[in-house]
Design a protein around this nucleic acid. Sequence first.
RNA 1: GCCGGGGUGGUGAAAUGGUAUACACGAGAGACUUAAAAUCUCUUGCUCGCAAGGGCGUGUGGGUUCGAGUCCCACCCUCGGCACCA
Length: 800
Amino acid sequence: MYNGPGVEKKWQEKWDSSGLYRTNLQDPKRPKFYNLVMFPYPSGDKLHVGHWYNYGPADSFGRFMRMKGFNVFEPFGFDSFGLPAENYAIKTGVHPVESIAHNCETMRKQIRAIGTMYDWDLEVVTSTPEYYKWTQWIFLQLYKKGLAYRKKAAVNWCPGCQTVLANEQVVDGKCERCKSEVIKKDLLQWFFGIREYAEQLLDYSDMDWPEKTILMQKEWIGKSTGVNINFKMDGSDEVLTAYTTRPDTIYSVTFVVMAPEHPLLMELVNGTEYEKEVREVCDQIQKQTLIERASEGGKNKLGAFLGKYVINPVNGEKIPVYVANFALMYGTGVVMADAHDQRDFEFAQKYTIPLKFVISVDGAKTSPEKAKEAYTADGILFDSGDFTGMNNREALPKVAEWMEKKGFGKRTVNYKLRDWLVSRQRYWGAPIPMIYCAKCGDVPVPEESLPILLPEDVDFIPRGRSPLAYNEKFMKAECPKCGGAAERADETLDTFVDSSWYLLRYPCANMMDKAFEKETVDHWMPVDMYIGGPEHACMHLLYARFIHKVLRDLGYVSTKEPFKRLFHQGLITKNSAKMSKSKGNVVSPDEFVGKYGSDVFRLYLMFMGPFDAGGDWNDKGITGVARFVDRFWRAMSEKTAVVDADAMKRLVHRTIARVTGDIEILHFNTAIAAFMEFVNEVSKTGIDLEHQQMMVKLIAPIAPHLAEELWEVLEGEYSIFHQSYPAYDPALLQETMFDLVVQVNGKVRGKVLVDRGISEEDAIKAGAAIPNVAKFLEGVTVVKQIYVPGKLLSFVVKIA
RNA sequence: GCCGGGGUGGUGAAAUGGUAUACACGAGAGACUUAAAAUCUCUUGCUCGCAAGGGCGUGUGGGUUCGAGUCCCACCCUCGGCACCA
């Protein structure tokens, strides 16, 4: 019997001591293959099934590419800055430097038990000064290019904890820790100008990504084309500019709404009788959570009349201006409102604003008076000047063009994507390398003084400002411009900044004098395969693309995109709930790995179902995989008599073809099924040493320890991972005979074994001769015969 | 509400428009054994039939086709993502 756990330890040590997985970063002979998994946050919990589900199959794919002849680079690291370590420190007093070092060490040990080919010499830990020095350097590059800037932004503020909260720390509008009511507070924040790259980020050419992910990103970027329309204020020369994607509805516009955050809003009402109410309504809206503001239904519409009117440029009508909660600072922050939009319609009903339709199914005049809802469908325009009688969709571009010619409209492109807020009023992150000078303003730290070290003697208990602000030694700085006394930035960077460039650092992890070297990075970029969870579709994956493009524009890298092929592994749940420590439903692999070994566990995870589907955890089937490993071990390690050499060869080559094809598209479950069928068959045919060796090589990527041990037994030279993957002979895949399926009126009535090269005529003869088929052909007229060579014969008959 | 997956045996699941349920778990029967475990062999969608064989069957209802799990239309359920984006 095969002793998995014992054998595995032996090989893991040998792989380690022989440096098998150390990458030759400049191998001129083999094409490169950068095989990357999303690096984890080093939590204190044990490695769970989800980690294995990500790293095991990803490593199998890397091993497959290695044996296919590629120089595979498969690194690992830790995304170790972030909130959890800081919260843990607040709770227990254990310093993040300490807890993170400890957690990384524990995780490294556990990950080694999987038996992956990570090159630990080139490890990345984002919270080390060697790493975050370069994260700070990247910030400075963006700053120099004008892509990092400061502006006021509303943040979640907990008055109880005296701190900024992340969205996930706000539960039902309350602080998850102290349950205080969370308020919005305007703070100066740092942003990265990702909007400038919105258009470029919509280019997904040459990327082998899941359609779904591309769609999600496109939606997130949210490009729309429309028109900015100028509405002149009644009685003044001021102009309100509204953005619309529906200029075709301009003749139905009966009011205009502004976002409460619009900079001009208070100017319009200051000192008027409307000021008080508008202020009150704005305050109320500010208190609304995003969910309240976003909830559906007319009841939730909230707003106030500003006492001002604008002129509709197309018909000179005087229409009222309102502030409304459903208007956001998107586009221009001003919306032209009409009866062809459900939100506008509901708002108008609540505040009894007149409405009118200009589109109906057939162009007949209709009125909103009796209507219960907006008319949002397409149709024929009426009461629309020169455009009356046209289909509204066809009219739309013409209206836009006409508006531009008339001078009150301008065609505009808009994006939902907002600039990336990168500053955090927190301790455990890379300090922002800026100095705030009373005289010179914001001054970047000179590159030669990086890293700005994160001080260790800091009190992390929140009390108003970022913990760094209370460390006098850290805060004291000299302005690099004027030489005067100044203050350091007390903010740290969002951890997404750390993870947006780590892929460039891996091959350069040991370089001390630069973030990365262009030559090396150009050789290894793009990442050929990136495997990780779909939850990062819009944030991490978009940010990494953005940073990569910025670095390319600055001349630091040459590739357009960081990730060539992307694959999302599915989620492993327990009783259909996400595994988490707080739910207490985390399944640990240890028990199974201890009993069956890493290979069996890895195989079982792969066999459970499609890799991208995930699934609900149960251990019911693991015995089947364990049995298979034993049977495979026996069939490959024992000398057996070959009973049918021809059948054996065909079996081996057919299995190679199936397994290779399946692994290429990461269908590990069916690859394993092919192996199982092989084991079931091979007992009948027998197998010789040459073919045993082929099969052992074939299984090596998905069961590396088992294969290495078998390779030794079969007197192969260490290591099997220096061997190349077996190829199949296409000639051996063709069977000489095949089962011809015979149908009558679409129902299978019989089968007959015939020669592969049989003519249509002979096939029909053979098919019709089957007694059970003949029975169904009796007393009827054959109308049609369909013959699919190598597969099937179908008689279409009519009862005479 | 919108966008995107997915609904197939008792269970995890296979299936370029061409034999639905491969592979595995579980269950049942048998062999080996003093016995058990392990291993091996057979059976295993439902249903009628002694059998040969027939009928039904991939969430529901329609459609296209000689032929549909697969394509089209409508709907139900479910899991993700987004959510007043003008």
